[in-house]
Amino acid sequence: MIRFLDVVVRYPRAAAPAVDGVSFDAPEGTITAIVGPNGSGKSTLVRALLGRVALQRGTIEVDGEDAATLDRRALARRVAVVSQREEPAFPLRVADYIALGRHPHAHLWSAADPAGATAVARAIDDAEVRPFADRTTEELSGGEWQRVRIARALAQDARALVLDEPTTYLDIAHEMSAFELLDALARRGQAILVVSHQLNLVARFAHRVVLLHRGVVAAAGTPSDVMRGDVLERVYEWPLVVTRDPAVGAPALLPLRGRRVT
């Protein structure tokens, strides 16, 4: 569904490319996770997909078409993005905010979007935000706001959903329910691409993991392929051990106390 092919991005006046030759697939029906230390290029990939930074080389394909040549609205109908941070300039009623997810489907000169009301109602139910649909965005807790943002992306009715650190600020229950929601969406056939620092959650939910290190792919494959002590220790530059989660058998990461690995 989303395919990165040899993508190189260099910010103006930066010494080294932020992303340097990254290739991977995020197919439908799976959760693909991008992990890596701060500054490894994860969010740059999301920005590149949105056309917010220019590619120096390579292409990003959506449904086999070059995202750079797709009309932005057409792209937004295929890929919904929950960016890392977002602060509306003025408080909005939650239901109105979620309805903005219909923007790529609506025409400026007509309000006609017959599928709109249904999509918004389904997004509200799927993200379980019905109880606060009538509040304003200012009256939400961090966890509620994050769910509301996911609901807006769901209302976009796109076959691919990209989330940049969706579980920041979330407690265990909200974190788990957010990933359970992504899992359900993937089972429905959506392509889920999630940037996350929560390696243990990624290990349990993601089907494919792409580990970035200084703009290049350090490892990619199933969680078991990627979550190896030697690989992670080198990339994160911190001593750690990888065990098996006794309950579910997924790899589990335990950073050790001590000193930086140099």
Binding site: R52, E86, L100
Partner: peptide
């Protein structure tokens, strides 16, 4: 008034607006 829906989206911030298909 015609472009008001775009202003709704712009008010969310650049990244969110770009994700909703607005240049």
């Amino acid at each position: 008034l015609l472009f008001a829906p775009e202003i709704d989206v712009l008010a969310l911030g650049d990244d969110a607006a770009a994700g909703l298909g607005v240049n």
